[in-house]
Amino acid sequence: MWIYEKKLQYPVNIKEPNAKLAKYIISQYGGPDGEINASLRYLSQRYTMPHGMQKAVLTDIGTEELAHMEMIAAIVHQLTRGLSAEELEAQGFAPYYIDHTAALWPQAAGGVPLNANQIQSKGDPITDLFENLAAEQKARTTYDNILRVVSDPDVCDPIRFLRKREIVHFQRFGEALRDLQEKLDSRNFYAFNPSFDKK
């Protein structure tokens, strides 16, 4: 069960619409390393975690990713708000506008739609936690790439916040992995799958 808080995790107040930037930043909504995929990945993986710590980390980070999804949506919404069809076209947003007007739709910067094939939920806790460490780094790289091409401080500020959270999540996943490994056979972490094989 989830409870909605009618607030953003971090403020988004963009004064200057810019559909060109919206086209880049929407990748962190529905792109391969975006916030929807992050949340879906962690909230799906938690059912096959063997211990409370890993279940908690996946639940709580998966929940925070939903708040990040909302922040990215707010950025894209505010970057396209109030623009005419002519302005959207002039700013390179026409292909998206034709299919979605100024709505939010989960796609990557290049137009590829959200797809569960972009994530994994493998049912082996070591494998899944390594997947998540990589996922946090991929999202951090995407934010670094965005920050190289965006100069509007109203956009950079919340993007920098989101980038920092990827680093914190990477740290927590690393701790969750270390804790799991300490509970496994130290001579062979791979002797059995603790969430599937009967010892």
Partner: peptide, 20 residues
């Protein structure tokens, strides 16, 4: 105050998950 306290909570709960 809401933004600061909520963020502090978001951050410390993850820390507590791995440092109970």
């Amino acid at each position: 105050q809401i933004n600061e306290s909520c963020f502090a909570l978001d951050d410390v709960i993850l820390f507590l998950d791995t440092h109970p």
